[in-house]
Design a protein around this nucleic acid. Structure first.
Length: 321
DNA sequence: CCGATTTGACCCGA
DNA sequence: TCGGGTCAAATCGG
């Protein structure tokens, strides 16, 4: 039986992959629509803090449906939080201790993690506060721990861990970033804020290929992870208003996923660099690649447990070497 | 003065 | 017992 299942899975893999890509395409279109609506809403002066307006709710629903479709096509199997080969053991079953101070973060960690590997910068669209740094055994570089700066304000459970890649400590280091939890502080990317980068969605979309399964395996081989996409809407709006932060930077990309953000969103080419001289890099991305990995936690995936696909890789072809 | 970062200590699971 | 994740006091910087 097991063998039969495996065979079936193999046979249907390619068609499922193409179907998945189509669905993913549709989802991105929906995401763009969502972004447009967000922008219009913001432009209209309405509070962007609530997305419960009809169109917004509708697009979210559409996105949600796409997510489920993707999950279904992918065959589920949310492989749970498997250990990365490069020591990213961050998510371990038991670490979620509600009673401790960081219960939220740990709980979030157990439910979902999104792994991102990118060159040159560890900046992203969010405002993070560093709360720890740890030397990791067998690792040249320490692991840095960040949590969303809005944890206190909004109960945002998002955290991330940043670690410089082992084999890459040159001028343009690769940072392996593992995201945990969700940004409950998140708002849809603010139109007026630094979050927005041109047509964002459209533009980045052209740069990307989404692949499921097998190709992700290659990615996993290279990065020790699984798969992909960008996690959350951002807290950029508030972040901007909260004054300077060393961890804050202007992105040149943006994504506008639903607030629930259960799913990895599309990837955004990213390399925000505060330094003016580095701004050129933004306009002409010289990231050699940007690979995002996503791992969805066990079944405890928070909301409805959809998104079972455990591998979704997003590559920037434009910058691919 | 306030907020962010640093860093040693503590906690917890394996 | 060890390794990893988080806390929180001390420190730093604007």
């Amino acid at each position: 039986m097991v063998r039969a299942t495996a065979l079936a899975a193999t046979a249907g893999e390619s068609s499922a992959a193409s179907a998945s890509q189509l669905v993913a395409e549709g989802r991105r279109s929906a995401a763009r629509l969502h972004a447009l609506l967000c922008r219009q809403q913001a432009a209209a002066g309405s509070s962007s803090s609530t997305l419960h307006g009809c169109p917004m709710a509708l697009t979210e629903q559409i996105l949600c449906c796409f997510d489920r479709a993707i999950a279904a096509l992918h065959g589920g199997a949310g492989a749970g939080c498997r250990e990365d080969d490069d020591g990213h053991a961050a998510v371990r079953g038991g670490k979620c201790k509600p009673e401790r101070g960081s219960a939220g973060a740990r709980a979030a960690a157990s439910s979902k993690r999104i792994r991102v590997e990118k060159k040159a910068t560890m900046h992203d669209n969010f405002l993070w506060r560093k709360y720890g740094q740890k030397e990791i055994k067998n690792s040249k570089h320490p692991r840095l721990y960040y949590r969303c700066s809005y944890r206190d304000d909004h109960g945002c459970t998002a955290t991330k861990q940043v670690q410089q890649s082992e084999d890459d400590d040159t001028a343009s280091p690769v940072y392996v970033i593992t995201y945990f939890g969700e940004h409950f502080c998140g708002r849809v990317a603010d139109v007026g804020g630094p979050v927005v980068a041109g047509d964002d969605g459209e533009e980045s979309e052209e740069l990307m290929v989404i692949s499921f399964g097998s190709s992700a395996a290659a990615a996993a081989a290279a990065t020790g992870g699984a798969s992909a996409a960008y996690p959350w809407p951002c807290c950029g709006e508030d972040a901007k208003n909260r004054g300077p932060s060393k961890t804050w930077s202007l992105p040149d990309w943006e994504e506008v996923p639903p607030l629930t953000a259960n799913v990895a969103e599309e990837l955004i080419e990213e390399e925000s660099t505060p330094e003016p001289e580095l701004m050129g890099l933004i306009s002409s991305p010289d990231l050699e690649y940007s690979l995002l990995d996503l791992e969805l936690g066990e079944s405890s995936f928070g909301i409805d447990g959809f998104i079972n696909f455990d591998e979704l890789s997003v590559y920037s072809i434009d910058n691919a070497r």
